[in-house]
Write a protein that binds this DNA or RNA. Structure first.
Length: 891
RNA sequence: GGGCGGUUGGCUCAGGGGUAGAGCGCUUCCUUGACACGGAAGAGGUCACUGGUUCAAAUCCAGUACUGCCCACCA
């Protein structure tokens, strides 16, 4: 290898990802490979990535999703689409407020200490410092995103979109002010939406109290899991059909611990079979009770305040107490009054705030809501009529079920970080008025008074992310981007934000832009730890994708995730998977080394003409063709796991294990034969790299650059396309199958008889099948080299018949023999034959069983029956030959 | 309580009416000029259970049992 040119091409023995990745990412980014512009000559392909929170750091879910997104983007880009993958971040109201407050706490401060304005400044400062960290992490993963178009949900133009959204819904009466029981997070002192609440079974008590009737005629027993709410009871309800209570309806009850009397009402919300059949009604602190209260015009008494402590309405004994303290005290007080009946252990489905982990307090409060029903219908239709497709399709049912039962959306949050609600208030003569306004000037104009103020609340984070696809492309302006790239093609995400986000994007897209926001919704698997547990900070079982990238490389990380991204199962992930993918990269690297080592400057990398190709050449080109067709089909349906499997098998088994081994013979030769092999090898490797590139961008670029290629970068090279399969392909496949099978059979005999691999043996074959015979003969050199044979000849009779020292084994259509002379170990050979005979006997039995079944012969298709007959014939033939061999060895 | 997945070799998973597949792990052999992060040859499974449909079921249907996820206001 003294040749300078070849020396230059030499690669290191092991693949070292770090430097390669940094180098190429920089090149790609700087040369504008990732940037897309509307181009009438091209078809658009667009993804707007799920914007991570500015508090976020790349986790396995991101790594998986963004591997998929980037793979799809790169695939389309290589196929000539104007491929845009648009990145951005979400201001993430609660999450960000949370971290900033924690940050403040380190200085011993709360947000109230510094005030709203200063606090928001701190939030912005956070976003400046940490809000774009994750971009760098996407770059590490190799994501080919258009960094010229990054968007943040609080960018000025994005805010314009939100204003437009709010204004439109407000003016159409879809946004309204309502007093409802909402999910109250006492830690953040804010409402949260239903979908931000998780129910968790927690052990608690079901407490039974006695409520005495006001007229002294005994008592009624009620059961509750939240005794402290009794202070706000305004009725007791029983089922109208409940005979026990029918005579008592309308009677008044003296509510203990208070000076109030409350009625016993009939409402079928009370289930007779539960507890005593009577239920206390607290309209201000329970959604059902609230609705029941509405039906009966009951007063609503708020006894638990926004801070989770008892209000004055709770009575002097309880005011100021924490709700859980109050619970104990109420029970004790009832006990003291002799009104406590019992408390039993009870598994309570407890609502927990997704963000703070606090027990949610249902609380009556005034909030802004969106009437969802009118928005939902078009979004239901768009999915039902197939304009939007869910993959896997089972998510369609889940989506439709939710949409058909949609509830109004509480959009106001009592937070500071977020989009301030663009509503201004004024008050005249005790009556409040409100109007939409983007600024104080607008508000004055709208309300006709300078004496006005803006609503204190901010919008739910999802109110802004609901606009993501259109707002990032310029809506409400009619931009060129919007008209070219919208609707986008793919939205890939985790299933937990199907409602929170996906459904709402569909609704806003249809409502504002008049078209769906994306065609495909791919819901990817959840990445679990290797024991099938959800990864979480508290469990400490999370795997950090950045450390995987550092250890094994971005390509290995991507490939290992894509490999497991099936449509049914969640992913049980262990670091070993990435390590294995890293070994795959190394294998690729070394295959490339091999190829480069054998390339000469005359190699063009273009395919030699058909007539010069060997069987091995024709076969590998056929395998490549099949593989590219399989991968393209899998990408089309988002079967990333299938695509990876096809790729892996082709590369490792077909290309490395067989083709490269077979190519070694002509590569050692001289002249045309050698050149053909070099060109085919270069062509196949170069094409394989392009085929792999969307999944493994870095290593493929690095190797591609050292091979004969066209273009500046593989990321803009064309993606290989499948061609129709020809009869010649099929012939090559058949002939190679025989050659491979023969090679395996010879190797197997050698191994079973423990013949040292280095020793070359004479081999022969016997075949009645012309095709098999000619194929074995034509490729005897190939087989001889792969199986380390000195020669391969055709025999017309079994060598064993002639008393020579041969051992034999059947393959499809032929019988193979190995001359082993004096080295034969008869015992081992008998063992080997017996093993084969046992296997054959099983097959014969099976075949016999089928063919002796008159129903099979009568009802199965004639082809199947014939197939089975042929099979049986073959097995019987093989058996008889082996039996003869066995006899000859027994002597 | 409803809905949806899963149950296939020791592990992780494909497959899917007609001879059970892969990777890892395991056993034996091999440092041969791409790669020991490698190569070759093996062992290993009545495809959760019970019924049904069928000439034929791991595969289709029904039910059961586990298991996971999503949804749900039973106090």
């Amino acid at each position: 290898m003294a040749d300078m040119d070849i020396g230059k091409r030499e690669l290191a023995k092991n693949y070292e990802p770090a430097a390669v990745e940094e180098k190429w990412y920089k090149v790609w980014k700087e040369s504008g490979v990732f940037h897309a512009e509307p181009d009438p000559a091209k078809k658009p392909y667009c993804i707007t990535i799920p914007p991570p929170n500015i508090t976020g750091s790349l986790h396995m879910g991101h790594a998986l999703n963004n591997s998929i997104l980037d793979c799809m983007t790169r695939w389309h880009r290589m196929r000539g689409f104007a491929a845009l993958c648009l990145p951005g971040t979400d201001h993430a109201g609660i999450a960000t407020q949370n971290v900033v407050e924690r940050d403040l706490a380190k200085e011993g401060l709360t947000r109230h200490d510094i005030g709203r304005e200063k606090f928001i400044e701190r939030c912005w400062k956070w976003r400046e410092e940490y809000g774009t960290r994750i971009y760098h992490q996407f770059e590490k993963l190799g994501c080919s995103y258009d960094w010229d178009r990054v968007r943040f949900t609080m960018d000025d133009s994005y805010v314009d979109a939100i204003m437009e959204e709010f204004k439109s819904w407000y003016e159409r009466g879809l946004i309204y002010r309502g007093t409802r029981v909402v999910n109250w997070d006492v830690r953040y002192q804010s409402a949260v939406s239903d979908i931000e609440v998780n129910t968790e079974p927690r052990m608690g008590k079901l407490t039974h109290f006695r409520y005495p009737f006001a007229d002294g005629s005994g008592y009624i027993t009620i059961a509750t899991t939240r005794p402290e709410t009794m202070l706000g009871d305004t009725a007791v309800a029983a089922n109208p059909n409940d005979e026990r209570y029918q005579p008592l309806f309308g009677k008044m009850i003296k509510l203990p611990l208070t000076d109030r009397e409350i009625p016993l009402i009939a409402d079928d919300y009370a289930k007779p079979e539960f507890g005593s059949g009577a239920v206390k009604v607290t309209p201000a602190h329970d959604l059902d009770d609230f609705e029941c209260g509405q039906r009966h015009n009951l007063p609503q008494i708020i006894v638990i305040g926004k801070d989770g402590c008892m209000t004055e309405a709770a009575g002097t004994g309880f005011v100021g107490l924490d709700r859980f303290e109050a619970r104990k005290k109420v029970v004790a007080a009832m006990e003291a009054l002799g009104l406590f009946e019992k408390a039993e252990d009870y598994l309570i489905q407890t609502p927990i705030s997704d963000r703070s982990g606090e027990v949610i307090e249902p609380l009556l409060s005034e909030q802004w809501f969106v009437d969802m029903k009118p928005l939902a219908q078009p979004a239901i239709d768009a999915v039902k009529d197939g304009r939007i497709k869910f993959i896997p399709d089972r998510y369609q049912c889940i989506y439709l079920y939710w949409m058909e039962n949609i509830r109004d959306w509480c959009i106001s949050r009592q937070l500071w970080w977020g989009h301030r609600i663009p509503i201004w208030w004024s008050e005249e003569g005790g009556s409040k008025r409100h109007a939409f306004a983007r600024s104080k000037e607008e508000a004055i104009a709208a309300l006709g008074t300078e004496n006005c103020w803006q609503d204190e609340d901010v919008l739910d984070t999802w109110f802004s992310s609901a606009l993501w696809p259109q707002a990032t492309l310029g809506w409400p302006e009619k931009t060129a981007d919007l008209s070219y790239f919208y609707p986008t093609n793919l939205l890939s995400t985790a299933q937990e934000i199907l409602y929170l986000w996906v459904a709402r994007m569909i609704m806003t897209g249809l409502d504002f832009v008049g078209d769906i926001p994306f065609h495909d919704v791919y819901v990817h698997a959840t990445v679990l730890d290797e024991h099938g547990q959800r990864m979480s900070k508290s469990k400490g079982n999370g795997i950090d994708p950045l450390s995987l990238i550092a250890k094994f490389g971005a390509d290995a990380t991507r490939f290992s995730l894509l490999q497991q991204a099936g449509k049914n199962q969640d992913i049980k992930y262990s670091e070993q998977r990435t390590e294995l993918a890293g070994q795959f990269c190394n294998k690729l690297w070394n295959a490339a080394r091999f190829v480069l080592m054998h390339l000469e400057d005359t190699v063009t990398g273009s395919l030699p003409e058909e007539s010069k190709l060997t069987l091995a050449d024709r076969w590998i080109l056929h395998r490549f063709n099949i593989t590219i067709s399989a991968i393209s089909a899998s990408f089309q349906t988002y079967d990333m796991d299938d695509a990876c499997r096809a790729l892996y098998q082709f590369f490792w088994n077909d290309l490395c294990d067989w083709y490269v081994e077979m190519a070694k013979v002509p590569l050692r030769a001289e002249g045309e034969e050698k050149q053909t092999a070099q060109n085919v090898l270069a062509w196949v490797l170069e094409s394989t790299l392009r085929m792999m590139h969307p999944m493994m961008p870095f290593i493929t670029e690095e190797i591609w650059q050292t091979l004969p290629h066209q273009g500046e970068t593989i990321s803009l090279a064309s993606y290989p396309e499948a061609r129709p399969i020809t009869p010649a392909d099929e012939a090559a496949e058949a002939a190679m199958t025989t050659a491979i099978e023969a090679t395996r059979a010879f190797r197997n005999m050698r191994a079973e008889l423990t013949i040292a691999p280095g020793i070359k043996l004479k081999a022969a074959f016997l075949s009645a099948d012309d095709q098999v015979s000619s194929s074995l003969q034509a490729n005897s050199g190939l087989i001889a080299s792969l199986a380390r044979l000195s020669s391969l000849e055709i025999r017309t009779s079994t060598p064993a018949d002639e008393g020579e020292k041969w051992v034999g084994t059947p393959i499809v259509g032929a019988e193979l023999f190995l001359e082993i002379g004096e080295t034969l170990d008869v015992g081992k050979e008998l063992e080997r034959i017996d093993k084969e005979l046992t296997a054959i006997a099983k097959q014969i039995e099976r075949s016999h069983g089928m063919l002796n079944n008159p129903n099979f012969v009568k009802r199965a298709s004639p082809e199947k029956v014939q197939e089975e007959r042929n099979r049986l014939g073959e097995w019987i033939e093989k058996k008889s030959r082996l039996d003869e061999q066995r006899k000859s060895f027994e002597k």
